[in-house]
Design a protein around this nucleic acid. Structure first.
Length: 643
DNA sequence: AAAAAAG
């Protein structure tokens, strides 16, 4: 670094203390309408997030310097007239401009929601409906392997995060880190690369957002050269951090989450994804971007159009990393990470997160990492015990009627509504539409979401579902990963996925933040190949495995090539580097273990590490104990045509 | 053989 700390100090002092009178804050949605708008009365917004004060970057350290890249710095440009023009602009706009489609009102609302949830958590009241049930996490085994693993912490206070961020964490009422956060954040703050596996719904987003935002704030000197500049007459954005996610909706969700954490810190966060007008996204980028959240396709497009450069990236986080490195996505990810000017591993910090991480993908992923730490909270690819899993033997032809019975019983038990959402997964996009249509004509208001719908429809469907306006959502795998939809009490796998990992992610849409949930699956003859993995997974999660499923599982020996552990399934808290067959140079990874029962030698047998199941109340009678029954119960069935 | 991600 060429800048001296001392040079920088007065600047930040200036930022905090001298606040000359500035124009009244004008909410974005009213800015162009009435420049003399005065802010609404205080009570209309969250007391925890007072009216935002426009953030000002400290003045440039070398104002006389006239390098064009600095002149193009994005905190200078914001709201100012174009160079060489004296044309009056609309009112002196504050610098902290959220993208138009996410106005502050929306943000405040989300924050209030979050506040309620977290206040309950503070009481430690696991009995309350909304509480984050931390007890549920207490006995989860944690494994961290790699060299010099930084120590875990017990509170956010112990972690060196920048003050602005800590303030936001407090505002969000995040009282206490979840297990993945306790371990991952110190590792990330120490600048280490990380491959992290944690169960669905356990707080991964914050685990990578906190270190990134904190890092950006602590490295303002460095960030100064990022932001935006010019190349060939067009503005180029130079983000210093990039977060990638596999679906558009997930990108938006991460973006909104990150916005909360970066609130009023001056860290500029932008999201880009396909299916939405690219021009608007260009505009957002031109206002400057420190942290870019993106789906791969749109990002590559923007790189090729020279609207975004990755040459200044310091932090790279890939959410759902196993899917992102799987066949369909891998070429695009390589393009982004290896072929377009992004600093190589070691010169940037890379963090990969997912609930599932098959060995072969771990191997691939290590290309992107340097001296990384492998962290598991819970098992790789296991589901939480908080989700009660029911597997029912239902042939394709009976599925609709069976579903109707379930939904009826459910409705009798507790009316559908905002607090009781049902998410139904199907295999195909066509199947989603047709099931949705059938449900609607059968008296169950449903919406569908899948990749053939235009983005607007997708977002509207999700919104209607979240609100409870349409408490049934029929979805393809577009909704299987990452989406945090509060109050999904029931996930139904109308069609089981081919891949056990996908199953894990799908059922993970319920049972979030330590709450319990129910997952029902219709198992048909077609799903035979999944029997073994499914039975293993259920056993691991302390579920009762129907005896017919166990029998199927035993009979299935056609799963060669699926990996050596656990009958071909892909779980096990496991750093693939610890496999002895990897050979020299990898045997010196030390392993650190935390948590009760996890003290096993990972080099020896693949013996299961048991852990105590937290108590939870699952409404096993959610839709009645097979009273509506189909009769497929525990009797073993031997299906023909499969072997 | 399907879904997702660019248009």
């Amino acid at each position: 670094m060429t800048w001296e700390d001392d040079d920088f100090a007065p600047e930040s002092a200036h930022r905090h203390h001298t606040r000359p009178t500035r124009p009244t804050y004008i909410p974005p949605h009213l800015r162009t309408i009435n420049p003399h708008y005065t802010s609404p009365p205080q009570h209309s917004r969250s007391p925890y997030f007072p009216e935002p004060t426009p953030f000002r970057r400290p003045p440039l350290l070398n104002p006389s310097g006239s390098s064009s890249s600095r002149r193009g710095g994005r905190w200078r440009r914001g709201g100012g007239a174009p160079r060489g023009t004296d044309a009056p602009r609309r009112s002196p706009a504050p610098r902290f401009l959220p993208p138009k489609h996410y106005p502050y009102d929306d943000l405040s609302e989300k924050l209030d929601e979050l506040k309620v949830v977290e206040e309950d958590a503070v009481d430690g009241a696991s009995s309350k409906g909304n509480a984050i049930n931390f007890e549920a996490y207490d006995d989860i085994p944690v494994e961290a392997s790699g060299e010099n693993v930084p120590e875990a912490v017990e509170s956010f206070g112990e972690i060196e995060l920048s003050e602005g961020l800590k303030e936001n964490i407090r505002r969000c009422k995040y009282a206490k880190p979840t297990p993945i956060q306790k371990h991952a954040i110190p590792i990330a703050v120490a600048g280490r690369d990380l491959m992290a596996c944690a169960q669905t719904g356990s707080g991964k987003t914050a685990a990578f957002c906190f270190p990134i935002i904190s890092g950006i704030l602590k490295n303002e000197n460095w960030v100064k050269v990022a932001g935006s500049g010019r190349r060939g007459g067009t503005r180029v954005a130079y983000p210093s951090a990039l977060i990638l996610a596999p679906t558009r909706e997930l990108s938006c969700q991460i973006y909104e989450e990150a916005r909360k954490f970066g609130y009023n810190t001056g860290v500029k966060i932008v999201v880009v994804y396909g299916g939405a007008p690219i021009v608007q996204q260009f505009r957002n980028l031109e206002k400057g971007v420190d942290l870019l959240v993106a789906t791969p396709g749109r990002l590559v497009d923007m790189i090729e159009r020279a609207k975004v450069s990755l040459s200044m990236i310091r932090y790279l986080a890939i959410d759902e990393a196993d899917q992102m490195l799987d066949m369909g996505f891998e070429p695009q990810i390589r393009k982004i990470v290896q072929q377009n000017g992004m600093p190589p591993a070691g010169k940037r910090q890379t963090m990969l997160f997912s609930a599932t991480f098959p060995d072969e993908i771990q191997r691939l992923a290590s290309d992107f990492l340097s001296d990384y730490i492998f962290l598991t909270v819970g098992r790789v690819g296991s589901s939480t015990d908080l989700i009660a899993q029911r597997i029912e033997l239902v042939q394709d032809i009976d599925k609709r009627n069976h579903l109707k019975n379930i939904l009826r019983a459910q409705r009798d038990n507790e009316p559908f509504g905002k607090s009781s959402l049902t998410l139904i997964f199907v295999e195909t996009k066509r199947g989603a539409d047709s099931l949705k249509h059938w449900l609607s004509t059968s008296g169950f208001a449903a919406v569908a979401i899948h990749g053939d719908k235009v983005q607007m429809e997708r977002e509207q469907a999700l919104k209607a579902f979240k609100r409870g306006a349409t408490p049934i959502l029929v979805a393809t795998d577009v909704a299987s990963r990452g989406l945090d939809i509060p109050h999904v009490s029931h996930v139904i796998n109308f069609d089981l996925p081919k891949d056990i990992d996908s199953y894990v992610h799908r059922i993970g849409r319920t049972g979030r933040a330590g709450r319990s949930g129910l997952a029902t699956a219709f198992f048909s003859d077609k799903n035979m190949p999944l029997a073994k993995a499914l039975a293993e997974l259920m056993k691991e999660s302390n579920q009762d495995v129907p005896s017919w499923l166990s029998q199927y599982a035993e009979r299935s020996f056609n799963d060669v090539g699926q990996g050596r552990r656990y009958g071909g399934s892909k779980f096990g808290a496991h750093d693939f580097r610890n496999d002895s067959y990897i050979g020299n140079g990898n045997s010196d990874y030390s392993s650190a273990y935390y948590g009760g029962d996890s003290m096993v030698d990972s080099h020896s047998s693949p013996t299961r590490v048991g852990y105590v199941s937290p108590t939870f109340g699952v409404r096993a009678d959610f839709y009645g104990p097979a009273s509506h029954g189909t009769g497929f119960g525990q009797e073993p069935v031997v299906a023909g045509g499969w072997e």
